[in-house]
Design a protein around this nucleic acid. Structure first.
Length: 305
DNA sequence: CGACTTTGACCGGCGC
DNA sequence: GCGCCGGTCAAAGTCG
């Protein structure tokens, strides 16, 4: 695991100056005190202990990452299955609920080409409306289930103007407008998937009439804001249409998927992003925090002694 | 102090 | 015409 090696490197780098200082101090005091040898032995012992602790933590981290990756894969499989069922279910909805049906037809246009259920009369009635219908796209973003903020980082600047609890989904739907340009007509609806609470469905309406902020910011932009056109982690384009699943938390498995993806992920920018993601995940784990704090405090205590 | 979020009120479309 | 529902508005609150 890449993060493990990074952590090892970082811990190692932190320990190196200490080792150097220890050896220098010992060299200066050599001959002055007879207990220096004992002290040195104790220090080396402690250093070994910290190193082994470091190793244990790294192993623990590797196991955690492995388990996390496995769980992630299982979750992905499960989500794909339920999503397929969901689509089937939508298609078999009873026609009694016309409001819902209209929405489903609208969604069918979103997902891809489908048989039109509207009669010729209807199409002749509203030809203009269909022509000026704004471009609609859907994006599925995998986030932490505990994360209640309906934020989909796509690089654009959004301003929330409303929130509603809809009938068919207990989780609230948030309404956003693109605030990067005052005249930008693009709107975004964000709501958690009813089937999978860890998946956030963002529906984009319209097209941006301004360049992507990342193009204006240059290449030195922060990794915190993800860009749809440059998504570092796994991006799944659905065969059924322009539905995109962004697995923002996926790490190892995405590397195993394809060599081309691996090449992308190994770029320094992506590595930074992965490190950030994993660090944020790890800092949420109290046991890891406790172990890390114990290791660090142990080192400080040893130094003070 | 400006930008942004929250949230209740309001509006228009649709079905009954 | 009435009620339901999704979408939007706008005042108040919050944050940096």
């Amino acid at each position: 695991m890449e993060f493990t090696s990074l952590l090892n490197t970082s811990l190692d780098l932190n320990l190196k100056p200490l080792r150097k200082q220890e050896s220098e101090n010992n060299f200066m005091e050599f001959g002055r005190n007879t207990t220096v040898e004992e002290e040195r032995g104790a220090l080396i012992k402690e250093l070994n202990r910290v190193s082994s602790e470091n190793k244990n933590l790294a192993e623990l981290l590797t196991v955690m990452c492995k388990n996390y990756s496995e769980l992630k894969n299982q979750m992905m499989e499960y989500t794909n299955k339920t999503n397929n069922h969901g689509i089937l279910h939508q298609n078999s909805t009873t026609p009694s609920n016309k409001r819902k049906l209209a929405e489903i037809n609208n969604n069918s246009n979103i997902i891809g080409p489908s048989e039109s259920t509207s009669s010729d009369e209807d199409s002749s009635k509203k030809p203009k409306e269909e022509q000026i219908k704004p471009k609609i796209s859907r994006v599925h973003v995998r986030t932490e289930a505990s994360d209640t903020s309906l934020v989909v980082k796509d690089g654009y600047q959004w301003r929330k103007y409303g929130q509603k609890v809809t009938r068919d989904n207990p989780s609230p739907r948030a309404y956003f407008r693109c605030s990067f340009a005052p005249t930008c007509p693009v709107k975004k609806k964000v709501q958690r998937s009813i089937e999978d609470q860890s998946v956030v469905v963002a529906t984009y309406e319209g097209e941006h009439n301004h360049p992507h902020p990342s193009k204006l910011e240059g290449t030195s932009t922060s990794n915190r804001s993800l860009r749809l056109g440059n998504v570092p982690c796994s991006t799944t384009l659905r065969s059924t249409g322009p539905m995109i699943t962004l697995d923002l938390t996926k790490q190892k498995s995405s590397q195993e998927e394809s060599p081309s993806l691996r090449g992308k992920i190994e770029s320094p920018r992506i590595q930074n992003y992965l490190v950030e993601q994993m660090a944020s995940n790890l800092t949420k784990d109290p046991s890891f925090k406790a172990a890390l704090a114990a290791a660090i405090s142990g080192k400080f205590l040893q130094q003070n002694n």
